[in-house]
Design a binder for these strands. Structure first.
Length: 874
RNA sequence: GCCCAAGUGGCGAAAUGGUAGACGCAGGGGACUCAAAAUCCCCCGCCGCGAGGCGUGUCGGUUCGAGUCCGACCUUGGGCACCA
């Protein structure tokens, strides 16, 4: 190690980062190995969709995973940290439609581009395990599991509604429906029924709900969201006797979670998709017209629930179960969902906001069943919907006490009804079965065949994968598989006769519901290799966006159970993610200028010039900050600044990681993205923050350079320095364990400040810097290697054992206690750490400020919290 | 419409119910320099000359003590089953 001065003249991230990446690759430090002698650790970031460009959100996600992976490597774990591509999906087909080309070419091209953009980040990924979900090797195994699940009774077909574009004659995704119209055709969208494939996730409703309690290392909010999504409810299911209904509809089954409000019923309502509505539709043109009207618009819940509540009186009536002489009208209503309960309800307007709106509109009676405790029965200005745990006074109750909670009222009502033979108490779930059929090309083909003789027949496993044909075109809307001249034709696996392939492909959520398991044996000839899965599962730490809190994570939890049932995962893996962390977005300011646009309007009295304004956006590099304002560089026009906006191309506030890495190096990007905000919150990317990160890394580098060239020095400050180093080890370790990377970085800043001021021996400084290199290594691995090497560290810092804090050096002898008087800080005293409370009290009362405030009186109360604070209450 | 979360200086933030603002950015002052860049040092919540007062989205509550706990509200963000 001669010529240190030359080597260390300046920190050059470009050279240094490539050098260390090569060193890690050569030593194969990130290759995941089954090692019986070591504990294993599986860290996984949600794999990306290959859009073609990485963005700062990816950098943040993968850097966090990398910190965890590298920290665990240093802790002595055998680490699995893989990466792959969620490669099926609509954008590839859209690109093919817009620009021509093939989804496959586009997707694999994007994967190559994105991988090239990711590699300079220096992530600790075992790239030998990489795969894309569009690889036939992967989706073939998915098809094999589909067949096993079909055999196990976890898959079935039924009719379900889709968004139908009547002009393009195609099915639309919810995001392709804009204001009830098709995004390309602009035609009003209709709801249409198709026979589709479903996974029986509802078989697991109860279990998926109950098991949430065991997910201790998941964010509470995600568990709450999933619990609400599963939506367990206890209620009463009973049948109304109908009057004037068609043949076969003598009874109308309804489900209610509020049977205690039965006496407030003023109507019954059924979904437009209810069998009774269909029967009426066939013979009554008015019903047919209304039902057709209800089927306009998209299928999304947000759309249905925000639509105006509308109903049509059918003329049919039902008898009230508690009083057969009392008849209620039956409506068809657009806000009743066929998927939930029985698709029919009774309406109690007094205690349901939607029913209230409906009853008001159609002039139906609104009678309170209960009133607040102490209140009297009176006309209601709006629905009265207290929490079920609240005690209320039943004025039209029929079961239980007059004053009881809603919960008790419901329970008594169910018991009472069961006793009288009116229906039965049932537990219902809002969770619906998972529809996986997609009428699209770029997805995993559903491996079944439709045979005129045998019906629906599973493809034989030896014929898998059912490959997507390459010769397809996207010049006309719709699924190219459906119109492919030869692909659809095949032999029935059962009878050998002419048959047709299923042309639906699977929801891409299926692909992402088991990729974590496939990473444990990415090239196995079966979906999983049980020995590998048994060693590596579960994922110890999963990291991704909160937007996946419900669907992806719930489907994965179901799929792991289904895989276990079909023998593809061990029992311990049915909850595949031990710990979950949801990170925030990366945001950036938007620079916007209102551009005045002249409009000439003729008003009758002469031409008038009107102005309207159209926003114009500027890229970060197009503006400059000066004199407390922000201006466009070329034109000097002032722009307004919108802070913390999600990065989006149209708003021109996207920062490209590639440019940042080119300018400052990967370590700077990694350091900044971790330093500025807590990981679960959004972080705002700022140019000045990135520059500051770069400056800081250089500063550390310069300190190392200075130490390397310094004289042996005086050891007077060695102990103080050692204390600071061990304090930092303890704090940084705790912060990383708690996913508080921003705090870990703040502690490293503090240590750096101490270090740059320290007067200690070269040996002590060298130790301090070597330790700092270790502490920084998970965040800025390249610089850490550089410093580690310069300070004479053995081998690579990435594999060096994590430092341990010496408890003896963390102890403090004395402690400063703030003294509050009536809760306001007025003074402070410094006392030995272990001073008994009685002595502290004595000292406090002798304190000048306290004595003055007391003015000879004894305090009303004296609170001493040892080691923390003193409060004197006058 | 329904479910979930977040709001603290000019900005990003920190704070087992116990000194609000650690650490960083921006800003101000100084050193070095012919000068600039880079680097280093100091100051920096708001009002007030000061003593002091006020401050964690808003309003109320619990407590010796509340950013933290409870209730209501406001704003912003995520999800709502075919975006991934």
């Amino acid at each position: 190690m001669t010529a240190k001065g030359q080597n260390m003249a300046r920190y050059k991230p470009g050279q240094s980062e490539a050098k260390w990446q090569a060193a890690w690759a050569k030593a194969e430090v990130f290759k995941a190995r089954r090692d019986a002698a070591k504990p294993k650790y599986y860290v996984l970031e949600m794999f990306p969709y290959p859009s073609g460009r990485i963005h700062m959100g990816h950098v943040r996600n993968y850097t966090m995973g990398d910190v965890v992976a590298r920290y665990k490597i240093a802790q002595g774990f055998s680490v699995l940290h893989p990466m792959g591509w969620d490669a099926f999906g609509m954008p590839a087909e859209n690109a093919a439609m817009e620009r021509g080309g093939h989804p496959k070419t586009w997707t694999y091209g994007n994967i190559a581009d994105m991988k090239a953009q990711m590699q300079p980040l220096g992530l600790s990924i075992d790239w030998s395990r990489e795969f894309a979900t569009c690889d036939p090797e992967y989706y073939g195994q998915q098809q094999a599991m589909f067949l096993d699940m079909l055999a196990a009774g976890l898959v079935y077909r039924k009719a379900a509604v889709v968004n139908w574009d009547p002009v393009d004659m195609t099915v639309l995704a919810n995001e392709q429906v804009i204001d009830g119209r098709g995004w390309r055709s602009n035609a009003p969208v209709e709801r249409r029924e198709l026979t589709q494939w479903f996974f029986k996730i509802s078989d697991y409703s109860e279990e998926l709900l109950a098991a949430l309690d065991g997910l201790k290392d998941w964010p509470e909010k995600v568990r709450v969201m999933q619990a609400n999504w599963i939506g367990q409810s206890r209620g009463l299911q009973f049948a109304f006797e109908t009057v004037g209904a068609p043949e076969g509809f003598g009874q109308l089954e309804v489900y209610t979670t509020r049977p205690d409000t039965l006496m407030g019923a003023s109507f019954a309502a059924i979904s437009p998709d209810h069998p009774l509505a269909r029967a009426l539709e066939a013979r009554d043109p008015a019903v047919a017209a209304f039902v057709a009207e209800c089927r306009r618009g998209g299928t999304s819940a947000a759309e249905i629930e925000t639509a105006e509540k509308r109903g049509l009186e059918t003329g049919i009536r039902v008898r009230h179960p508690l009083d057969p002489a009392w008849e209620l009208p039956v409506y068809i209503a657009n806000f009743i969902l066929m998927d939930y309960g029985t698709g029919a309800i009774f309406g109690c307007p007094a205690h349901d906001a939607r029913d209230f709106e409906f009853a008001t509109k159609y002039g139906l009676p609104i009678n309170a069943v209960f009133v607040p405790e102490g209140a009297v029965d009176a006309p209601l200005p709006e629905a009265y919907v207290p929490l079920k745990s609240e005690r209320v006074h039943y004025v039209r109750g029929f079961a239980g006490e007059a004053v009881q909670t809603g919960e008790a009222g419901v329970a008594s009502a169910i018991a009472q009804c069961e006793e009288r033979g009116i229906g039965r108490g049932v537990t219902n779930y809002r969770l619906r079965d998972w529809g996986i059929s997609r009428q699209r090309y770029w997805g995993c083909p559903i491996p079944v065949v439709h045979c005129p003789a045998c019906g629906v027949v599973p493809e034989r496993k030896e014929n898998l994968p059912v490959r997507l044909p390459d010769d397809v075109s996207f010049d006309v809307p719709g699924n190219p598989l459906d119109r492919h001249p030869t692909w659809r034709d095949c032999a029935c696996p059962k009878c050998g006769g002419a048959a047709r392939r299923e042309s639906d492909t699977m929801d891409t959520f299926v692909d992402s519901s088991w990729y974590y398991a496939r990473f444990t044996a990415p090239h196995a000839a079966t979906p999983t290799d049980l020995a590998e899965a048994d060693y590596w599962m579960n994922v110890d730490q999963y990291i991704g966006g909160i937007e996946h809190a419900i669907l992806h994570l719930l489907y994965s939890r179901f799929f792991a159970r289904a895989m276990h049932k079909t023998g593809h995962l061990p029992a311990k893996a049915i909850e595949p993610f031990n710990a979950l962390f949801t990170q925030g977005m990366v945001t950036h300011e938007i620079y916007k200028r209102r551009q005045k646009v002249e409009l000439t309007a003729y008003t009758g009295g002469g031409d008038m010039v009107e102005f309207t304004s159209r926003p114009e956006y500027f890229l970060p590099e197009e503006v400059e900050r000066r004199d407390g304002g922000v201006y466009v560089k070329d034109t000097d026009e002032p722009v307004s600044v919108i802070p913390s906006a999600k990065m989006s191309k149209s708003k021109k506030n996207v920062v490209d990681p590639v440019n940042i890495i080119r300018a400052f190096g990967a370590d700077t990007a990694r350091w900044f993205i971790l330093s500025d905000s807590p990981p679960e919150r959004d972080v705002e990317w700022t140019a000045s923050g990135a520059e500051a990160a770069y400056k800081f890394l250089n500063r550390v580098w310069l300190i190392a350079e200075r130490v390397a060239e310094s004289a042996p020095g005086d050891s007077a400050g060695d102990e103080a320095l050692a204390r600071a180093v061990h304090r930092a080890i303890a704090d940084v370790t705790a912060s990383i364990e708690n996913f508080a990377f921003n705090k870990a970085i703040a502690k490293i800043y503090e240590l750096t400040n101490t270090l740059s001021r320290a007067t200690a021996s070269r040996a002590a400084m060298t130790f301090a810097l070597r330790t700092m290199a270790q502490l920084m290594s998970p965040m800025v691995p390249h610089l850490a290697e550089e410093i580690w090497a310069a300070m004479g560290g053995a081998g690579l810092v990435v594999t060096a054992p994590w430092p341990k804090a010496d408890p003896a050096l963390l102890e403090q002898d004395s402690v400063t206690l703030p003294i509050q008087i009536n809760g306001k800080r007025r003074a402070e005293i410094t006392v030995p750490k272990d001073m008994p409370t009685a002595e502290v009290e004595k000292l406090v009362l002798e304190d000048e400020t306290v004595a003055k405030a007391l003015a000879g009186q004894a305090p009303k109360k004296l609170i001493v919290v040892p080691g923390r604070i003193v409060n004197v209450v006058l």
